[in-house]
Design a protein around this nucleic acid. Sequence first.
DNA 1: AATACCGGCGAGT
DNA 2: TCATACTCGCCGGTATT
Length: 368
Amino acid sequence: MTSSSNPRAIIALDLDYFYAQCEEVRNPAIRDKPVVICVYSGRSEISGAVSTSNYPARRLGVRSGMSIAFAKKILKDNASAVFLSIDLEYYQSVSDRIMDILRSRSEKFEQASIDEAFVEVSSQYDSGYLNAIKVAKAIKEDILSSEKLTSSVGIGSSKLLAKMAADSKKPDGFAVILPGEERSFLGPLPVGKLFGVGPKTSEKLKSINVSTIGELALVNEEKLSDLFGRKLGPSLKDWANGRDESPVVEKPIEQMSRIVTLKSDATIFEFQDVLQPISEDLARKLHSSGLLCKSIGIIGITDALKVKSRSKSLPVPTESGKIIFETASELFSNFFEEEKESRLRRIGIKISDLQGMHSKIGSLEDYF
DNA sequence: AATACCGGCGAGT
DNA sequence: TCATACTCGCCGGTATT
């Protein structure tokens, strides 16, 4: 018995410069001006980082992740530039409305982030993706009419291809990679454009003379495994060849975290006031999702910006803010005992091993 | 020998 | 220039069973 099936038809949707565009919709007067969305850390008047910006700001050199100070410097002669503090709740409410509509209308849907989603329309497959194109255009127009937001969409035979298609034409873009065109689309692109390949991986690939995705596609698999590990190595080769079987499926929440920047770096455990509210926050979020956590961790970012972490799995899953707080406190005390010289700039709590409230896991010994 | 746990790293939005 | 707040996946090492 042989079986064959059509390629999948997947639409990737990406809301353009999402946070900044939400602000443009809320206040149309700032449209066409450089708009910078800032995460102020509270250490000084302007300390903090740029979350994102609109295209006028980007054209002048503003980038995600740069310091607010640097963005202000770049825009210092631009009287019209607008710096706004991030308002995540507002963007989340806009996102929720859009995602709920898409989810309710799709047979297969996956929200990938606050501003990205996949819709699969394989069931009405045609070789020119005419149906997928029609659906994608309808989605774009829906979002434009209901929320006044532009978006970029890509269509391809996998999530990877659809996503990279969407990325290739931004903003307000529309790109289709037909089945069979995968390699010719990917081949000429620099490896850094491949989803999952960031600066570190690019650097390593450069060291073995691989600079394009087409070159990566030809590298010996064992060599990639040696360099990048048994999972990532083979995946890189697959992706570079346009192979990606990952399904369009909504993923359950796996972890939640909260982290804050301290007013000044700390060398001892003295953060009850900081940990208390974020513990309660996490407990509330857990409870509202109907989940329990089985492991609790702390995150610290040192003055040298190195990430430190400690974690502990619990004997019994919890949703208690008190237990989250007490466990995190204990982990921080232990951490500073082990690393007396550490100065922490940012601290946070991560809860993971999330499970449904009524999942029956474990044996009798867990209860007695 | 398999599985679980732990801390670190990399990547993405 | 001076560096946020999240999420996810994977790695190697070690402990547990």
